[in-house]
Nucleic acid binder design. Structure first.
Lengths: 148, 148
DNA sequence: CTTGCTGCAAAAGTTTTGCACACGT
DNA sequence: ACGTGTGCAAAACTTTTGCAGCAAG
């Protein structure tokens, strides 16, 4: 993976620095989605200090290298996920609890290709996000109603 | 539509005020997606002055009434769209030019229902967003390369 | 008269930028 | 040396919140 990033940087005349290596490592260690801030704190915790600005700058490079992709789930902040060599993940989000369930379904890939083809686009990525209310949130609601 | 909003507000013990009416009107007049700021400026331009805070507060109520839905396309800011009584719109986005093409496909509705059912969720909304490079952006790129 | 609404300005939160200095090649 | 990278702090931007006065049932 490291070499993929190296190549992508080289193509743009950029350097593979220790900071970028540390950030890539941290990203690779993440399971599922993460936020820029979370990455920052985790790196601080494990003694790999890199500035916030560098994290954001490096995430941009990782996006361009298609190693990471941006997942827009809510309007609060950007989420990222490791995406290299994987089918894009799709998400089921509870609007009450913010709980997020990941699911995958290979048919989206074909649908995305069809749409792109129809409009002459080159496909980069796609994402299906479903919003709903989880069973947990429903039970919580009922509990509240009984209180009232 | 107005009465839908009224009912939703009443259910929550809230009032249908002149400001909320004006914002609903402005939203109804919009074709496709819009941003909170755009709504603000348009309302200013047409002499319907409402404060920024009220716009944001009202958009929240419209979301809860399922009259409007939030569309997360990029990380810059939230986009909204009128959604009452419509199938959710899906989007094809050019990552170079930010051009957005709307498309619809009824099969997503069933897919979303299936996913929700499988996890015991109540479906609220869903969205399929495809990212790619538009033909326009490709031609622009080639032009740049020739320059170099 | 109690509850909710608005506008303003300030605050909050995330992401970007400017700058001075440091580093890699 | 050169261009690029980094950290820091400040800026920019969108969105939220507190508050004082107002409106409505």
């Amino acid at each position: 993976m490291c070499s993929v990033f190296r190549r992508s940087l080289k193509r743009k005349g950029l350097k593979f620095t220790p900071e970028r290596a540390k950030i890539l490592d941290a990203v690779l260690s993440k399971q599922g989605m993460f936020e820029a801030e979370a990455l920052l704190f985790e790196m601080r915790r494990t003694g790999h200090h890199v500035s916030k600005a560098t994290i954001y700058r490096t995430l941009k490079h990782l996006l361009e290298a298609n190693i990471v992709s941006e997942v827009l789930i809510d309007s609060k902040q950007s989420h990222y996920e490791l995406s290299f060599g994987r089918e894009p993940a799709n998400y089921l989000v509870c609007v009450e609890t913010d709980k997020i369930v990941e699911f995958s379904d290979s048919q989206f890939s074909k649908l995305a290709e069809n749409i792109c083809h129809k409009h002459g686009f080159d496909l980069i990525n796609y994402r299906f996000v479903v919003y709903g209310v989880s069973p947990d949130a429903r039970s919580a609601d009922e509990a509240n109603n009984e209180d009232a």
